[in-house]
């Protein structure tokens, strides 16, 4: 029989981590599926009773998403259009049951190549706060997830929050997921994006991230660069070109071929640029 610890403060949690090196559990949506057919006997640190670890707060320059915030919390929260992509991703995670239990931090720490939350947060330039018994550090999400189910989390550390930097009130986000069925489906490919425009409707910043097409979701810097200064309109899709997808390294699996994933990523990206520019132009057009 393993240990089951359910502390009420972060201090207790990191002390327990240092003492026992347990598995960290929140929504359980990745923990239990890895243990089908047996009674789990792992040492576990359940972080869902920790005060202040759940919820979305306006932190001035940032939106602060507590580690135990569920996808349902994201869907239900009143948030600016910048976070639309994250909200759409939340709606595409599993079914309603998974959205009600699964957490944002769990999705990041599990580090699946097909994690639906990662592209949206990458496009938002999200950072993660990692806390140990002795120190806290902030890492860009892009430096946190370092491989297929590998993260930069150190022994004794727990993720306590995700920080999403604010942008201008014109900034918009969007997300597109491709799966072989509706609901409860592992993505074949997905694309998330964030776009900000100036008074003339010209793009001042753009971030595009693709998921399920490499070990880790990837940003597309060449495309982002090419978007800068352009007018946000439907013509944007014409600048999408194959070399911009060089960061992707898709694989063949039961869900799709590598070649298909690349083609789908490009198609989804073109569509995303159309909807992003429409949204960005929206109230100002």
């Amino acid at each position: 029989m393993g240990l089951y610890l359910r502390p009420q403060t972060v201090e207790e949690a990191v002390a327990a981590l240092a003492a026992h090196a347990p598995a960290v559990l929140a929504g359980g949506t990745d923990f239990y599926p890895a243990r089908v057919g047996r009674a789990p006997d792992d040492d576990v640190l359940d972080i869902t009773a920790i005060d202040g670890l759940r919820g979305i707060d306006d932190d001035g320059d940032y939106w602060r998403i507590g580690a135990a915030t569920t996808w349902r919390d994201i869907i239900d929260a009143p948030l600016p259009p910048l976070l639309d992509g994250l909200k759409l991703a939340a709606r595409e995670i599993g079914g309603a049951q998974i959205q009600n239990a699964g957490t944002v931090a769990g999705n990041l720490c599990n580090a699946s190549p097909a994690a639906d939350g990662v592209p949206a947060l990458l496009a938002l330039d999200a950072q993660v706060i990692l806390q140990s018994a002795t120190a806290a550090r902030v890492l860009p999400l892009a430096k946190f997830i370092i491989g297929n189910r590998r993260t930069a989390l150190r022994t004794g550390e727990i993720m306590t929050a995700i920080l999403v930097p604010k942008r201008s009130s014109r900034a918009v986000g969007d997300f597109l997921k491709l799966g072989a069925r509706r609901y409860l489906v592992i993505s074949i490919a997905m694309v998330a994006g964030v776009m900000d425009v100036d008074d003339d409707g010209r793009i001042t910043s753009a971030a595009i991230a693709v998921g399920a097409c490499a070990e880790v979701a990837r940003r597309l810097p060449a495309l982002e660069q090419a978007l800068l200064g352009r007018r946000a309109d439907g013509a944007l899709q014409d600048i999408v070109a194959e070399p911009q997808f060089a960061p992707l390294q898709p694989i063949d699996d039961v869900r799709g071929s590598a070649a298909y994933r690349l083609a789908a990523a490009a198609t989804l990206t073109r569509r995303l640029l159309v909807t992003l520019s429409r949204k960005a132009a929206g109230p100002h057009a």
Binding site: T29, P33, D46, A49, R72, Q97, A101
Partner: peptide, 15 residues
């Protein structure tokens, strides 16, 4: 009041 999968919910979280 929210639907969840009981197979993914540890007893401890029902407290």
């Amino acid at each position: 009041g929210r639907q969840v999968c009981a197979c993914l919910t540890p007893l401890g979280q029902a407290e």
